[in-house]
Design a protein around this nucleic acid. Structure first.
Lengths: 267, 267
DNA sequence: CGTAGTAGG
DNA sequence: CCTATTACG
């Protein structure tokens, strides 16, 4: 495993018609993590559901047309698991993980919230349940000799450098103080203990953003958010040699409001 | 008034983006009758709602996004009336009429039905209430020295020549014996007393069809129905010199599942 | 197979 | 603004 890419496709059926298929055919990634598949497997064409040369695993949501994550791996995994053990989210299409030799890799779609609504409460319940799981996962994997990489749409920008208009979004879901504090705990060596691979390799830059609203000229003006992360255990993070947002993948013809984010690892 | 065109636009907002605007700008009609506007006036752009050179009158449905008829006239009408006096259908967006010198012209969208459903019952209630109105209208207009022309989507094919696959549709709403019999009463000299202008000028042809399903290759194969009619009082019908379906108007780029139907009158 | 509606993001 | 749903045609 050298390269892992994560991308929120915002509806795999729509994305497949607009450029996702060509992008996947051209990628050199060994693992691709998808979020917002927004389809049941039988609604996908065979070629999209099971692309040539990949093993594909889907965790759809029980709610039709919502959420849905997937993992594509070149190598056949030793095991695949859906959900993280919290009843409320088991069939929410938000988490799938696979064991590869020396690595557990996961595709995560953390709920998006809206301040003052039940959806924000749901996001917070997810966060509360998911952090202990991340700790368990890290410990369990360490015992099994595996590094961990949790990729996906975390729906939180961590620091001011992670979104263009941070001042205007201090009261917006996705940049609330409690959400940012939660991500800090994920990254805290004494708690979650994960590393933000992209930020680790690019500590001083604005962004790079991975999501731009479809409204207005957000993409053209690069008015974006960095909410898609590769969160890695330190041993794996130390092997990261390259990490970048494939902004150009959706430049000519946008096939999602997110761009793919990739990380390349040494040996 | 020389030329009157009727067209079911199947959503004026969608049609306006796909070719309706250009078609209207090029037409030489003096009156245009629209059905299935499927929008409230404020949802239309100014140029679409009030096209240059026309007087426009809308009768939207109380149900958002449904039905809706309109009349466009080059000349300012002496009067415009919405509905035909039957409570159930007053705000259903199915009937508007206007008085022009020597003529009352109407835009009608008769409900489409589906056998065995409440929608078929509604269609039948509409038919039952509308026939007496047509008789009243004819008599009232005659007393006022006006001819009558009721144009629109009647949602009934009258005879076998009025749809491609009449055998297969004998139990389909739109070609049921009772619907065909009702149209015969509209045309019966001793009852409705109206004339089918297009059929009057083209007694021996199949069609010409004015609606083709979007499903399959119906348009390319001309598997259509003739359900859009100009129904005229005899004095006006006798002045018809030309009547045709503008199939080519939606040939390159279809902007509705119906094509405009036009009739040209002498003096 | 389209156009609407509405929910979600 | 975009992708889904569902209702209607």
């Amino acid at each position: 495993m050298r390269k892992v890419t994560t991308v929120n496709v915002n509806g795999l059926r729509a994305a497949a018609k607009k450029g996702y298929v060509e992008w996947l055919a051209a990628t050199e990634a060994d693992v691709v993590c998808l979020q917002e598949v927004r389809a049941e497997s039988h609604q996908l064409t065979d070629a999209v559901r099971d692309p040539e040369g990949w093993h594909a695993f889907y965790a759809p949501s029980a709610a039709k047309g919502r959420a849905g994550v997937a993992l594509l791996t070149r190598q056949e995994p030793e095991a695949v698991r859906v959900g993280f053990g919290t009843e409320e989210f088991e069939e929410s299409g938000r988490y799938v993980e696979a064991d590869l030799p020396g690595l557990t890799v996961a595709s995560l779609y953390l709920p998006s919230g809206e301040v003052g609504t039940e959806r924000q409460d749901e996001k917070e319940r997810f966060m509360k349940a998911f952090l202990p799981y991340l700790c368990d996962l890290r410990e369990r994997s360490a015992a099994g000799g595996r590094e961990v990489l949790v990729c996906g749409d975390w729906n939180i920008a961590h620091q001011e450098a992670d979104l263009k208009n941070w001042r205007g979004n201090r009261k917006s879901s996705g940049f609330l103080p409690e959400e940012r504090a939660w991500l800090s705990r994920v990254l805290d060596a004494s708690e979650g203990g994960y590393m933000d691979v992209v930020r680790g390799l690019h500590p001083e830059v604005e962004g790079p953003y991975s999501w731009w609203s479809y409204r207005g000229r957000a993409f053209d003006n690069d008015t974006g958010w960095r909410i898609d992360y590769h969160m890695a255990t330190p041993g794996l993070a130390s092997r990261a040699v390259k990490a970048y947002v494939e902004r150009a993948a959706t430049h000519d013809q946008r096939w999602s409001d997110h761009a793919p984010v990739s990380a390349v690892f040494d040996h």
